Amino acid sequence: MARVNYGDGLGVVTVTYSPGETLAPFVDTLEKATSRPVQVILADNGSTDGVPEELAAARENVTFVPTGGNLGYGGGANRGVAALGPDIGWVLISNPDIEFAPGSVDALIAAAERWPRGGMFGPLIREPNGEVYPSARLLPSIGRGIGHAVFGPVWKSNPWTRAYRQETEPVERTAGWLSGSCFLMRREAFDSVSGFDERYFMYFEDVDLGERVGAAGWLNVYVPEAEVVHIGGHSTARSSDRMLREHHRSAYRYLADRYTGVLWAPFRAVLKAGLALRVWAVTRKS
Rank of each mutant, 00 (worst) to 15 (best):
S141C: 01
I142L: 15
G143H: 02
R144P: 01
G145M: 00
G145L: 02
I146Q: 02
G147N: 09
G147F: 10
H148N: 14
H148G: 00
A149Q: 13
V150S: 07
V150C: 11
V150Q: 09
F151K: 12
F151G: 10
G152L: 02
G152D: 07
G152A: 07
P153K: 03
K156V: 11
S157W: 09
S157Y: 12
S157C: 04
N158W: 03
P159V: 10
P159W: 05
W160I: 09
W160G: 05
R162E: 13
A163W: 09
A163R: 11
Y164M: 14
Q166I: 05
Q166A: 14
Q166Y: 02
E167N: 12
T168H: 13
E169Q: 13
P170M: 07
P170W: 11
P170A: 10
V171N: 13
E172D: 01
T174E: 15
A175M: 03
A175D: 07
G176F: 06
G176W: 07
G176Y: 00
G176K: 09
W177L: 02
S179L: 06
G180I: 00
G180K: 03
S181R: 14
C182R: 02
C182E: 12
C182Y: 05
L184Q: 06
M185N: 01
M185W: 12
M185L: 14
M185K: 03
M185S: 04
R186L: 06
R186E: 08
E188L: 09
A189N: 08
F190Y: 15
F190I: 01
F190A: 01
D191K: 09
D191Q: 12
S192E: 09
V193D: 02
V193W: 07
S194H: 15
F196L: 02
E198V: 12
E198G: 05
E198W: 05
R199L: 04
Y200I: 07
M202P: 00
M202F: 13
M202T: 04
